[in-house]
Computed example of a mutant assay.
Amino acid sequence: MATATVNGVTLHYDTAGEGPPLLLIAGLGANSSAWAGAVPELSRRFTVITFDNRGVGRSAVPPGPYAVDTLADDAAALVEFLDLGPVAAVGWSLGASVLQSMLIRHGSILSKAVLLNGFPSYTPIQLAWLDAGLALRRANVDPLAVGVIGMAWAFTARVLSDHETLANQAKLAADDPYPTSLAGFEAQAAGLRVYDSRPDLPSALTPTLVLAGAEDVLTPVSQSVEMASLLPNASLRVLPRGGHAMLLEYPDDTLAAITDYLG
Protein backbone atom coordinates (compact mmCIF):
# COMPACT_ATOMS: atom_id res chain seq x y z
CA MET A 1 0.00 0.00 0.00
CA ALA A 2 1.46 3.36 -1.07
CA THR A 3 0.84 6.32 1.21
CA ALA A 4 1.93 9.93 1.30
CA THR A 5 1.70 12.28 4.25
CA VAL A 6 0.92 15.65 2.73
CA ASN A 7 -0.90 18.77 3.91
CA GLY A 8 -1.10 17.26 7.38
CA VAL A 9 -2.93 14.07 6.35
CA THR A 10 -1.93 10.57 5.23
CA LEU A 11 -3.40 9.64 1.84
CA HIS A 12 -3.50 6.26 0.16
CA TYR A 13 -2.70 6.31 -3.55
CA ASP A 14 -1.96 3.99 -6.49
CA THR A 15 -0.31 4.48 -9.86
CA ALA A 16 -0.76 2.43 -13.02
CA GLY A 17 0.41 2.60 -16.61
CA GLU A 18 2.91 4.72 -18.47
CA GLY A 19 2.72 8.02 -20.25
CA PRO A 20 1.70 11.55 -19.31
CA PRO A 21 0.40 11.78 -15.72
CA LEU A 22 -3.35 11.78 -15.12
CA LEU A 23 -4.89 12.37 -11.69
CA LEU A 24 -8.39 10.98 -10.98
CA ILE A 25 -10.43 12.56 -8.15
CA ALA A 26 -13.43 10.64 -6.80
CA GLY A 27 -16.80 11.86 -5.60
CA LEU A 28 -18.57 12.27 -2.27
CA GLY A 29 -17.98 9.32 0.05
CA ALA A 30 -16.27 7.38 -2.73
CA ASN A 31 -12.76 5.97 -2.60
CA SER A 32 -10.38 5.28 -5.45
CA SER A 33 -12.19 2.05 -6.35
CA ALA A 34 -14.79 4.26 -8.06
CA TRP A 35 -12.30 4.43 -10.93
CA ALA A 36 -11.65 0.66 -11.10
CA GLY A 37 -13.43 0.23 -14.41
CA ALA A 38 -11.68 3.21 -16.00
CA VAL A 39 -8.08 2.62 -14.95
CA PRO A 40 -7.34 -0.31 -17.32
CA GLU A 41 -8.32 1.77 -20.35
CA LEU A 42 -6.75 5.04 -19.22
CA SER A 43 -3.50 3.38 -18.12
CA ARG A 44 -2.89 2.32 -21.71
CA ARG A 45 -2.14 5.99 -22.49
CA PHE A 46 -1.36 7.64 -19.16
CA THR A 47 0.37 7.19 -15.85
CA VAL A 48 -2.85 7.12 -13.84
CA ILE A 49 -2.84 8.28 -10.22
CA THR A 50 -5.84 7.33 -8.12
CA PHE A 51 -6.13 8.19 -4.45
CA ASP A 52 -8.52 8.26 -1.53
CA ASN A 53 -9.54 11.74 -0.46
CA ARG A 54 -9.22 12.40 3.27
CA GLY A 55 -12.10 10.74 5.08
CA VAL A 56 -12.54 7.72 2.80
CA GLY A 57 -10.94 4.43 1.83
CA ARG A 58 -7.51 3.83 3.27
CA SER A 59 -6.72 7.50 3.84
CA ALA A 60 -6.86 9.11 7.27
CA VAL A 61 -10.12 10.41 8.72
CA PRO A 62 -9.17 13.52 10.71
CA PRO A 63 -11.89 15.53 12.46
CA GLY A 64 -14.07 17.48 10.04
CA PRO A 65 -15.45 19.45 8.43
CA TYR A 66 -13.32 19.25 5.27
CA ALA A 67 -13.49 22.37 3.14
CA VAL A 68 -13.35 21.68 -0.58
CA ASP A 69 -10.27 23.91 -0.72
CA THR A 70 -8.61 21.63 1.85
CA LEU A 71 -9.32 18.58 -0.30
CA ALA A 72 -7.85 20.47 -3.26
CA ASP A 73 -4.76 21.34 -1.23
CA ASP A 74 -4.41 17.63 -0.41
CA ALA A 75 -4.56 16.66 -4.08
CA ALA A 76 -2.12 19.38 -5.11
CA ALA A 77 0.30 18.35 -2.38
CA LEU A 78 0.10 14.73 -3.55
CA VAL A 79 1.00 15.77 -7.09
CA GLU A 80 3.99 17.70 -5.74
CA PHE A 81 4.96 14.75 -3.50
CA LEU A 82 5.00 12.45 -6.55
CA ASP A 83 6.90 15.06 -8.57
CA LEU A 84 4.63 14.48 -11.58
CA GLY A 85 3.29 17.95 -12.32
CA PRO A 86 1.92 19.46 -14.35
CA VAL A 87 -0.73 16.76 -14.60
CA ALA A 88 -4.00 16.35 -16.41
CA ALA A 89 -6.87 15.67 -14.01
CA VAL A 90 -10.42 14.35 -14.06
CA GLY A 91 -12.77 15.16 -11.18
CA TRP A 92 -16.10 13.37 -10.84
CA SER A 93 -18.96 15.02 -8.89
CA LEU A 94 -17.39 16.13 -5.57
CA GLY A 95 -14.12 15.45 -7.36
CA ALA A 96 -15.13 18.07 -9.92
CA SER A 97 -15.55 20.58 -7.09
CA VAL A 98 -12.10 19.66 -5.78
CA LEU A 99 -10.72 20.07 -9.29
CA GLN A 100 -12.40 23.48 -9.68
CA SER A 101 -10.64 24.59 -6.50
CA MET A 102 -7.36 23.28 -7.93
CA LEU A 103 -7.98 25.18 -11.18
CA ILE A 104 -8.53 28.35 -9.20
CA ARG A 105 -5.78 27.95 -6.61
CA HIS A 106 -3.25 25.47 -8.04
CA GLY A 107 -3.49 26.03 -11.77
CA SER A 108 0.26 25.80 -12.31
CA ILE A 109 0.29 22.06 -11.57
CA LEU A 110 -2.49 21.29 -14.07
CA SER A 111 -2.04 20.84 -17.81
CA LYS A 112 -5.69 20.05 -18.65
CA ALA A 113 -8.83 19.31 -16.65
CA VAL A 114 -12.07 17.41 -17.13
CA LEU A 115 -15.04 18.28 -14.90
CA LEU A 116 -17.25 15.16 -15.04
CA ASN A 117 -20.84 15.50 -13.81
CA GLY A 118 -19.85 18.59 -11.88
CA PHE A 119 -21.57 21.64 -10.43
CA PRO A 120 -20.43 25.09 -9.29
CA SER A 121 -22.57 25.13 -6.12
CA TYR A 122 -25.42 23.13 -4.61
CA THR A 123 -29.03 23.86 -5.46
CA PRO A 124 -31.82 23.46 -2.86
CA ILE A 125 -32.66 20.07 -4.40
CA GLN A 126 -29.08 18.90 -4.08
CA LEU A 127 -29.00 20.07 -0.48
CA ALA A 128 -32.18 18.07 0.22
CA TRP A 129 -30.62 15.01 -1.46
CA LEU A 130 -27.53 15.41 0.72
CA ASP A 131 -29.60 15.80 3.89
CA ALA A 132 -31.58 12.65 3.07
CA GLY A 133 -28.39 10.66 2.58
CA LEU A 134 -26.99 11.92 5.86
CA ALA A 135 -30.22 11.06 7.70
CA LEU A 136 -30.16 7.49 6.42
CA ARG A 137 -26.55 7.02 7.44
CA ARG A 138 -27.10 8.56 10.88
CA ALA A 139 -30.05 6.19 11.39
CA ASN A 140 -27.72 3.26 10.66
CA VAL A 141 -29.85 2.05 7.75
CA ASP A 142 -28.50 -1.03 5.94
CA PRO A 143 -25.82 0.16 3.47
CA LEU A 144 -27.44 -1.94 0.74
CA ALA A 145 -30.70 -0.02 1.17
CA VAL A 146 -28.87 3.31 1.24
CA GLY A 147 -27.16 2.36 -2.00
CA VAL A 148 -30.41 1.37 -3.72
CA ILE A 149 -32.10 4.66 -2.76
CA GLY A 150 -29.13 6.62 -4.08
CA MET A 151 -29.06 4.82 -7.41
CA ALA A 152 -32.23 6.50 -8.61
CA TRP A 153 -30.22 9.74 -8.70
CA ALA A 154 -27.21 8.16 -10.41
CA PHE A 155 -28.43 5.81 -13.12
CA THR A 156 -30.89 6.18 -15.98
CA ALA A 157 -34.05 4.16 -16.54
CA ARG A 158 -31.98 1.73 -18.61
CA VAL A 159 -30.35 0.38 -15.44
CA LEU A 160 -33.08 1.23 -12.94
CA SER A 161 -35.57 -0.99 -14.80
CA ASP A 162 -33.11 -3.93 -14.74
CA HIS A 163 -33.45 -5.01 -11.12
CA GLU A 164 -30.96 -7.85 -11.36
CA THR A 165 -28.21 -5.54 -12.60
CA LEU A 166 -29.22 -2.90 -10.07
CA ALA A 167 -29.10 -5.39 -7.20
CA ASN A 168 -25.65 -6.57 -8.26
CA GLN A 169 -24.38 -3.01 -8.46
CA ALA A 170 -25.80 -2.17 -5.03
CA LYS A 171 -24.29 -5.31 -3.48
CA LEU A 172 -20.91 -4.50 -5.01
CA ALA A 173 -20.99 -1.06 -3.42
CA ALA A 174 -22.20 -2.40 -0.06
CA ASP A 175 -19.39 -4.99 -0.01
CA ASP A 176 -16.65 -2.37 -0.32
CA PRO A 177 -13.78 -3.61 1.89
CA TYR A 178 -13.01 -0.02 2.85
CA PRO A 179 -16.44 1.48 3.56
CA THR A 180 -16.74 5.17 4.27
CA SER A 181 -17.44 5.95 7.92
CA LEU A 182 -20.23 8.28 8.97
CA ALA A 183 -17.59 10.71 10.26
CA GLY A 184 -15.81 10.78 6.91
CA PHE A 185 -19.01 11.21 4.92
CA GLU A 186 -20.26 13.98 7.21
CA ALA A 187 -16.93 15.81 7.04
CA GLN A 188 -16.87 15.77 3.22
CA ALA A 189 -20.55 16.70 3.00
CA ALA A 190 -20.09 19.68 5.33
CA GLY A 191 -17.52 21.24 3.02
CA LEU A 192 -19.40 20.42 -0.15
CA ARG A 193 -22.69 21.98 0.90
CA VAL A 194 -21.15 25.45 1.25
CA TYR A 195 -18.73 25.43 -1.70
CA ASP A 196 -19.36 27.92 -4.48
CA SER A 197 -16.79 28.21 -7.25
CA ARG A 198 -18.63 30.78 -9.35
CA PRO A 199 -16.94 33.98 -8.14
CA ASP A 200 -13.47 32.62 -8.92
CA LEU A 201 -13.91 30.43 -12.00
CA PRO A 202 -13.15 33.31 -14.41
CA SER A 203 -9.59 33.37 -13.02
CA ALA A 204 -8.97 29.68 -13.88
CA LEU A 205 -7.06 29.62 -17.17
CA THR A 206 -6.25 25.90 -17.56
CA PRO A 207 -7.88 24.30 -20.64
CA THR A 208 -10.92 22.45 -19.31
CA LEU A 209 -13.53 20.08 -20.68
CA VAL A 210 -16.89 20.28 -18.93
CA LEU A 211 -18.42 16.86 -19.58
CA ALA A 212 -22.03 15.98 -18.76
CA GLY A 213 -24.69 13.42 -19.56
CA ALA A 214 -27.97 14.67 -20.97
CA GLU A 215 -29.89 12.39 -18.58
CA ASP A 216 -28.19 13.52 -15.36
CA VAL A 217 -30.87 14.48 -12.82
CA LEU A 218 -28.55 14.97 -9.84
CA THR A 219 -26.24 17.48 -11.52
CA PRO A 220 -28.32 18.79 -14.45
CA VAL A 221 -26.73 19.93 -17.68
CA SER A 222 -27.60 23.52 -16.80
CA GLN A 223 -24.91 23.42 -14.11
CA SER A 224 -22.31 22.28 -16.62
CA VAL A 225 -23.39 25.07 -18.96
CA GLU A 226 -22.91 27.56 -16.11
CA MET A 227 -19.40 26.31 -15.32
CA ALA A 228 -18.38 26.34 -18.97
CA SER A 229 -19.67 29.89 -19.38
CA LEU A 230 -17.53 31.09 -16.46
CA LEU A 231 -14.28 29.30 -17.36
CA PRO A 232 -12.25 31.30 -19.92
CA ASN A 233 -10.76 28.25 -21.66
CA ALA A 234 -13.56 25.71 -21.35
CA SER A 235 -15.23 23.39 -23.82
CA LEU A 236 -18.66 21.94 -23.07
CA ARG A 237 -19.62 18.45 -24.20
CA VAL A 238 -22.96 16.83 -23.40
CA LEU A 239 -23.27 13.14 -24.23
CA PRO A 240 -26.77 12.11 -25.35
CA ARG A 241 -26.86 9.12 -23.01
CA GLY A 242 -25.96 8.85 -19.36
CA GLY A 243 -26.71 10.28 -15.94
CA HIS A 244 -24.59 11.01 -12.91
CA ALA A 245 -23.02 7.55 -13.08
CA MET A 246 -22.38 7.72 -16.82
CA LEU A 247 -18.83 6.47 -16.29
CA LEU A 248 -20.33 3.21 -14.96
CA GLU A 249 -23.34 2.97 -17.25
CA TYR A 250 -21.73 4.15 -20.50
CA PRO A 251 -17.99 3.71 -19.86
CA ASP A 252 -16.94 3.49 -23.51
CA ASP A 253 -18.62 6.74 -24.53
CA THR A 254 -17.48 8.58 -21.40
CA LEU A 255 -13.86 7.43 -21.57
CA ALA A 256 -13.70 8.19 -25.29
CA ALA A 257 -14.78 11.77 -24.60
CA ILE A 258 -12.15 12.11 -21.88
CA THR A 259 -9.28 10.62 -23.89
CA ASP A 260 -10.26 12.55 -27.03
CA TYR A 261 -9.92 15.78 -25.08
CA LEU A 262 -6.76 14.88 -23.24
CA GLY A 263 -5.16 13.68 -26.45
Rank of each mutant, 00 (worst) to 15 (best):
A60F: 00
S33G: 08
G118R: 07
F46S: 03
S229N: 05
G64M: 10
T180P: 01
Y66K: 08
V6K: 01
A174N: 12
Y195N: 09
A128G: 11
I125S: 11
G133C: 05
Q223I: 00
A139D: 15
A212Q: 09
V159K: 11
Y178P: 01
T70P: 00
N31V: 04
A234R: 04
G107C: 07
Y122N: 12
L144I: 15
D200S: 12
G147A: 13
D216C: 12
F51L: 07
S97W: 01
M1A: 15
L205G: 06
V9C: 08
P143V: 14
H163Q: 11
D73L: 03
S235N: 12
T165K: 14
M1C: 08
M246R: 05
V217D: 00
G118F: 09
A75K: 09
H106N: 04
M1E: 13
M246K: 03
A30T: 13
M1V: 13
P40S: 11
K171M: 06
V238F: 03
L230M: 08
D216W: 13
A204S: 04
E249H: 14
T259F: 02
V114H: 07
V87C: 01
V68A: 03
F81M: 07
D162C: 06
Y250F: 15
L236E: 00
L166C: 03
A212W: 04
A34C: 08
A77C: 05
W35S: 14
N31H: 03
A34K: 08
A167Q: 13
D260H: 11
V90F: 06
L71N: 02
T180R: 04
L144N: 04
A174F: 10
A187M: 11
D131V: 05
G213W: 10
S32R: 14
S229A: 13
N53D: 02
D200N: 06
L182E: 11
D83I: 08
A152H: 15
V159Q: 06
A170P: 02
G263K: 09
T208W: 03
F51Y: 14
L218V: 11
D176F: 09
E226I: 03
S121W: 04
T50R: 15
A75R: 04
K112H: 14
R45G: 02
S224H: 13
D14M: 09
G8L: 07
T123G: 05
V79T: 04
A2K: 11
G55V: 09
A228T: 02
L134W: 00
A183P: 00
S108T: 13
L115V: 08
A245W: 14
V148P: 00
R54I: 04
P199M: 05
D196L: 06
F155K: 12
P177I: 14
R105G: 08
L248H: 08
V68Q: 01
A214M: 05
S32E: 04
Y195D: 03
P62C: 15
M246E: 00
N233D: 01
R158A: 15
N168Y: 01
L42I: 05
E41M: 03
S93N: 09
L230A: 13
G133L: 07
F185P: 05
R44I: 04
A174W: 11
G242D: 07
G213L: 05
W35G: 14
A212N: 08
P240H: 11
V39M: 06
R138E: 15
V6L: 02
V68P: 00
L28Q: 04
P143H: 14
L182T: 12
P65H: 15
M246C: 09
